[in-house]
Design a protein around this nucleic acid. Structure first.
Lengths: 212, 212
DNA sequence: AATTATATATGATAAAAGTCATATTTTTTA
DNA sequence: TAAAAAATATGACTTTTATCATATATAATT
């Protein structure tokens, strides 16, 4: 996430594009010739596995940029970026990015900070994936989703995900997520209303995620 | 990993320090006031878990830099960096890094590339951790270690790790690693000589790691 | 070299998680 | 709105992995 001014600078004069729910902004393995600023909406970032399952690596929302990593490495897209609701993004061509990096050292530093921060989060994810069991990871993910996307007027986490998408975030089976969510509900840690999830006991979920 | 010239530039006039096997170059949570170039040797990068177990996030060797991510984020060290054999590294103070970034746009770009690359690798790790079973991850890790550290004169992977360290790389129990290594040995995929591991059938390991 | 400590190895068992089957509910489409 | 499709839910069972116990081998220390 960059500062408002930096994003403004890029998105001024740029055409904003609509990405409908389920559509891809970028596709893993495809060449990348610019990056995107998310103006509005929500996206999931996924990686395809040899067994054909998508692994959700992270989520982004308004104010986030995506695609810059591939540009900088001069590699094809490492992830597929898919809208999880109708969203708007604006495209910034590669040249604009490179030009700005070269002419504006403080922007380069800002970008370094941005990617460094993402790298730290990715490292934390690796440790969590490796050492936490599915229940711990689910608890953690629910807290993460509420923190990232906030809550709606009825206090439900403000993002609609299928159980399968949650499973693909945790790296587990859909049935396991369904069972665990039922368990959390029975223990009065969460409330469920279709796909909507409301966290009732944040502290308890935090404890579970840390193994207590 | 940066280019030879860039590293030279930093390490000239810098004192090289000896880090003995088991000693830390940086410690998770501690403040960071510079970064290190590895001149010689091997290090593991670990993250402490709530259950007290170390998770090995990655490995580095000569030519790699470490600590720059925390510097750029202005955060405490996110990882502990421990020598896995007697090693040499040189310290570059924060000011030198910041100064170079500001005065040398192409260096900033190089650094962006470096961290972007690491972020991509971390994303791959997340997917692997989430979707592969222990056997697949072990096969992959053996191939990774040979690729990173190369082999000695007898073709054994040129790094000495305990079974526990391998387990902490995969995020599994030490006994599981021991059992699986025995299995690979019985299947003539690897040869074991104490802690030394020799890969006999690279293709078979690759197939296992991809789930065939 | 003998002793101690640490690492490796292996079996037995338990716990966690995956898979398959099937029922029910919700959502989408015609 | 009805029919079809997709998602959720739950039980039964299997596989994977962790844990505990213990034996053996290797490395470190005195």
């Amino acid at each position: 996430m960059l500062t408002y001014e930096e994003l403004e600078c890029f998105s001024r004069h740029k055409s904003t594009i609509l990405v409908k729910k389920g559509e891809n902004l970028m596709t893993e393995g495809n060449p990348v010739n610019g990056f995107y600023c998310v103006k509005n909406g929500k996206f999931k970032l996924t990686k395809l596995n040899s067994n054909g399952k998508d692994q959700i690596i992270s989520y982004i929302k308004e104010g986030y940029i995506v695609g810059h990593r591939s540009l900088l490495c001069e590699e094809p897209a490492g992830l597929t970026v898919t809208a999880i609701e109708d969203s708007f993004a604006c495209f910034v061509p590669k040249e604009d990015l490179m030009c700005t990096i070269k002419n504006n050292p403080s922007f380069a530093l800002e970008l370094l900070k941005n990617i460094s921060h993402q790298l730290n989060e990715a490292n934390c994810s690796i440790a969590n994936m490796a050492q936490k069991n599915v229940k711990q990871r689910l608890a953690e993910t629910l807290l993460f989703l509420e923190d990232l996307f906030g809550v709606d007027k009825n206090d439900y986490i403000d993002v609609i995900l299928t159980r399968e998408e949650i499973a693909n975030t945790l790296g587990t089976a859909t049935e396991s997520v369904i069972r665990l969510l039922s368990g959390f509900k029975n223990d009065n840690l969460i409330k469920l209303k279709g796909k909507k999830i409301l966290i009732l006991d944040k502290q308890a979920l935090k404890n579970i995620s840390e193994g207590y």
